[in-house]
Write a protein that binds this DNA or RNA. Structure first.
Lengths: 361, 361
DNA sequence: TATTAGCACTAACCCTCACTGAGTGCTAAT
DNA sequence: ATTAGCACTCAGTGAGGGTTAGTGCTAATA
């Protein structure tokens, strides 16, 4: 029996991993039906909606084989079948590069770039909000990695006897501020010199590099006797210390709770915890920065237990220089991949465009 | 019959609005029971838990009277009774000033002030997160009102030919940054003079005042011919324009969705919308800044439809100079008022203390 | 040999119905 | 003024039965 389905024409090869065309069509059809209805698909309904004419019995045979190969499961004997993660993986792999997207949606997403003149964070917040609204799922975006972002400008401002305000502007247009405390009060003029020194030395260097270079300077004893230098190093150390714990913006978590797929399951609680902790999801986003274009994590593929039953669709955004971060959608594994993929893809593109225009290169 | 309950001892006064002592005790007991169990309270169960010995029948009579006076309602004939908003109002009014609070909780909340050296926003974020975690409800906090906060320092930094970074530091320690675009490029030296001028003129003035003064200056024609002044006014206008739309931080919305009280009702959706819009809740928070100490809005008392079924417990926080904002908890009307009130109260106090230490006065 | 029709079987779902238990209001007794 | 007793209400539970959408298997058919 199995031979029928898996045999790709060549006799003798019994366990061919490639599905024959008809099996593929059936599987495809089951998945698309299930995405629409969220209900187990039976042989009869399928025989109606599927393009070619196949009797329910034939379809049953095929389905039985697909089940054996791990693409479908049955919740109980007399129920229709439901796609597994493996099936979704097959499905998204079979999709061509990001499907087209309605003009209307395009325009909506493009509004993100109206945030012109706002800072990067505001743009990201708007993008993630918009995406959550459109997809009706939870959306996340990682802010530009501090480590890789390059310095455009540092500014030191004395705001009281013992406090100095540090302003960092990166090439990507991110502004960070932080207050540092000092024991010995310096004049603003002196701080200006220090800032000028730091600007000269570190402009265009990445934060990571800067931290390393400062660390080296500290080890070098000679610097101790140079007043300006010594102060610059001490202040610089504190200033660049702002180890932004790689921020992440979230929107639309609520959508997940209201989504019927999760409503039933008791997994909601743990899903929320996952969002609260951020770190785990952050890690996945970071991961996805490696990939070009849209990347998809399906259910069990992400090793985070709480995200079983969820798929994550991500796309990285960038400026001229670097990949900066990643934006993504978290939804049930049975989400409408075509729709969501195209939206994520397009949003990331708009994001890249908008941020590139804002950058200082 | 009614006479019995409402008659406070004096015969003849038939509709006295003050409940006699026993009726008060019964009502009190019903409310506390209901807060614990979230289930309609019947006469028999009550007769067991209430301190004094009263037969179910007697209690039924009293309850019937309380219902007639609007303190209780019955969902259906054969069900126990449930407190109304009016009852909760009676209840919280009868509570003495904020009840004491376990040492353990105190210590937990006090951790908020460990955020020392962070900026005000980080402290607020931490406070609201903590409060959400402790109360298991949704929590909100309004950031210091831009309009009333006083200028400590303004800084103008040229970061590219057509962009100027504006940094505002308020007395309360809030740092705001914004990028403004200019057509004619100015040197950093010139910007420094402008900033100095603005600092001299506006230090310690509130944002609101500054905006007004700038507006007046613009009307005054003479200023047109003074180069520095003219630029200062133009740049100042843009800089102080950042009409921060009175920000608000939210945490723990999820808690509400998971709360059984809301889970049943279909009102969840609209409740979420209320949080998404922010503006309405913001208004309530602003309102609450008028009151000293803890203030409580019960169900129908806040005219926001979506918040029917919710109570809001707020307390304002301040520095030496001004009331800055308000922190609050949103939960079901049947929440444990004693517990929540004390937490909100204590959190606001810690918040005030921490922020006062950070302020520049 | 591949496909299909037919049949027996399953399990979820829905409806109804009777029973139970917590509650009430009223009346009469204390 | 309080309480005991009684009749009544209604949500909730669980059992029984019919319906429906599905399955697997076997035998007939193209």
């Amino acid at each position: 029996m199995i031979k029928k389905v898996i045999d790709n024409g060549k006799k003798g090869v019994r366990y061919n991993l490639v599905l024959n065309e008809r099996a593929q069509l059936v599987l495809h059809s089951i998945i698309e039906n299930y995405i629409q209805s969220s209900e187990p698909i039976g042989s009869r309904t399928l025989s109606k909606t599927i393009g070619i004419t196949l009797s329910p019995a034939t379809i049953r045979n095929i389905m039985s084989d697909l089940a054996e190969l791990g693409y479908l499961i049955q919740n109980h004997t007399s129920a229709g079948r439901v796609p597994t993660d493996k099936a979704y993986r097959f499905y998204v792999n079979s999709l061509a590069s990001p499907p087209s997207i309605p003009q209307q949606i395009k325009e909506k997403i493009s509004q993100v770039s109206n945030e012109q003149g706002s800072q990067v964070e505001a743009i990201l917040a708007e993008a993630v909000r918009m995406l959550a609204e459109l997809t009706k799922f939870a959306c996340v975006v990682s802010t530009p990695k501090a480590a890789v972002s390059r310095l455009q400008r540092i500014e030191l401002i004395k705001i009281s006897e013992d406090r100095i305000l540090v302003i960092l502007v990166t090439k990507a247009g991110v502004v960070r501020d932080k207050i540092i405390f000092t024991k010995d009060s310096q004049s603003q003029e002196f701080l200006n010199s220090v800032a000028e020194f730091l600007n000269d030395k570190f402009k265009n260097h990445s934060m990571q590099e800067i931290r390393e270079e400062i660390h080296e300077s500290m080890v070098d004893d000679r610097n101790r006797y140079h007043d300006l230098l010594a102060h610059a190093i001490r202040l610089g150390k504190k200033a660049f210390e702002l180890n932004q714990p790689g921020e992440m913006l979230i929107d639309g978590q609520m959508n997940l709770l209201l989504d019927s797929h999760f409503h039933e399951q008791s997994s909601v609680r743990s899903l929320i915890d996952a969002f609260d902790q951020k770190s785990a999801i952050m890690k996945i986003l970071d991961d996805s920065m490696k990939y070009k274009g849209v990347h998809i994590f399906i259910g069990i593929e992400n090793d985070l237990k709480q995200l079983q039953g969820c798929s994550l669709i991500t796309a990285s955004y960038r400026n001229n220089q670097n990949v900066l971060g990643s934006i993504g959608v978290v939804g049930p594994t049975s989400m409408d991949y075509k729709r969501i993929i195209s939206m994520v893809d397009y949003t990331a593109k708009i994001l890249s465009k908008t941020i590139t225009e804002q950058s200082y290169d």
